[in-house]
């Protein structure tokens, strides 16, 4: 795809589900649930379709379902369409493929996810902590992370 064209959302929606391991999420607007092996092909397809803007990579911790959910927000530089790729990975050995070969923006975004959750990205050229210092123990944004005992932890959730 040249830099000047981007495939419309409807066309992407039709083509991306033909890739193996990609399933559309009902009720969502261009949200797709991926299997682990489908991440790189889906991202390569989106890059080729003109979605060159990797807006965000982040993770959400669902300890009750024993998984991390990785979310990739892929957009383009022409309109406001955002394709969301969701990837569930097991909580015990969290790893995923790195998108650094396709999007240069993935470098720091994946480092932040690694720093906060401990998810390792295979193929990342320089996977080290970015917000906390090297040698910090613990993955802060995990739900079972506790800072030192005695430190005021704030209000508990109102359930």
């Amino acid at each position: 795809m040249t830099n000047n064209e981007v495939k419309p959302k409807a066309q992407v929606a039709a083509e991306i589900v033909r890739l193996p391991g990609v399933a559309a999420i009902e009720g969502g607007d261009c949200e797709y649930l991926l299997e682990a092996a489908a991440l790189l092909p889906a991202a390569a397809y989106l890059l080729e379709a003109g979605y060159e803007f990797l807006a965000d990579i982040t993770a959400v911790d669902y300890p009750a379902e024993e998984k991390f959910r990785l979310l990739y927000q892929v957009a383009n530089y022409h309109n406001g369409d955002i394709i969301t790729l969701k990837l569930d990975i097991p909580r015990e050995q969290p790893r995923a493929d790195s998108l650094c070969g396709l999007y240069a923006a993935a470098n720091w975004l994946e480092r932040e996810v690694y720093d906060m959750f401990g998810i390792e990205f295979s193929g990342h050229p320089d996977l080290r902590r970015i917000l906390m210092w090297d040698g910090y123990a613990g993955w802060p944004l995990r739900k079972d992370f506790a800072a030192e005992p005695g430190k005021y932890q704030g209000r508990r959730r109102l359930d």
Partner: peptide
Amino acid sequence: FVDSYSVVA
């Protein structure tokens, strides 16, 4: 930010 894991109180 007093109850944050990374802030000095």
